[in-house]
Amino acid sequence: MRITRRRSAKVFFITLGACLVGVALILGVGWIVLNWRRAWPMVVGIPFFLLLIAGLVLNTIFLVREVRRNERHDSFLNAVTHELKTPITSIRLYLETLQRRTLSEEQRQQFYDIMLADSERLLATVEQVLKAGEVGQRARNQIQAEVDMHALVQECIETTQLRHHLAPESIRFESGDASLLVRGNPDDLRTAVENILGNAVKYSPNGLHAVVRLALEGDAWIVLSVSDEGIGIATAHLKRIFKRFYRVPHRNVLKTKGTGLGLFLVRSIARQHGGDATAQSAGEGKGTTIRLQLPRLLEAVRRPQTN
């Protein structure tokens, strides 16, 4: 019902804007016909009608964008509500079972493991929402630490495999021998890399088969690319997936969980560090590659020390 109302609102605003622009054009042409021999009305009238038409077009675009933004906000709230409610409900159910029934020690340990996993999922959702608000407010000049990207990516791969119970061969890591240091915030960079890997897991319904490459591009850039064989992304959505709250519509049929903040955080963190993030895909069903590009810490390729 709400989606239908939003679509009706978009159609209404676009139709209204088109009608008002048409009326403005008719009035403008009429003004020119009536006053074409008089210089002063022409000088004043033509710019006025052009500004009026431009204002109507911009106002229509703004209204349509607001409707779309509200749609994304609703989708985000629904996703966050689900991400918070599901583990809480699960934890409560297992606690009630532990309270009311006599269970063996093995069953108790199994319940504890499930509740711990649910609490970690709950914490990850809360941290992601908080990080999304925090990352846009941090000044770049506060980012000072020296980060070894090879070690950080290796750690993130191990964390992802452990968190999602993946086999070691599910992620192949390829990295060169060159110095791969950047200057940045280790926690933020870890968040970006884990979000990329988490996305690969989330959208590989038939099992993850990913290749993680970390390499130099020229002498100035370090590029991390994560390629999976998952459901892919249509070309029209490749740029939009980095927007806050945006989720590719057709992915919902897979009942994937998420808040629409993961790739937004990836690009925000990359740009805070002077880099960028992009996505590539041959189309739906053909896998996806996410690239994270960061400026190399050139001081790390330092002059050899002299005794």
Rank of each mutant, 00 (worst) to 15 (best):
K243G: 07
K85G: 12
L16W: 03
P295R: 09
T306R: 12
G45C: 09
V182N: 05
V147S: 02
T278D: 05
L265V: 02
G184I: 00
S8A: 13
V147M: 01
V301D: 14
L93N: 11
R267Q: 15
I269K: 01
T259Q: 11
I233Y: 07
W31P: 00
L189Y: 00
I143A: 08
S225N: 10
L103F: 02
I114A: 11
G274A: 08
L216N: 05
I26R: 05
D118M: 09
N35R: 12
L152T: 01
P41T: 06
Y112Q: 11
P186C: 01
T235F: 13
H73C: 07
I32D: 01
E66M: 12
T81K: 15
S281A: 07
K10P: 00
L25K: 10
E194Y: 03
Q272F: 01
W221I: 02
I26F: 10
V253R: 14
D228N: 15
R138K: 11
L93R: 14
N206H: 15
I88D: 01
A124W: 01
A220W: 09
G30E: 12
F48I: 12
L263V: 08
R2D: 12
V182H: 00
E96M: 06
G17H: 03
S170I: 04
H165C: 09
E146T: 07
E284W: 07
R69N: 12
T191E: 11
K239Q: 15
F49T: 07
E83H: 05
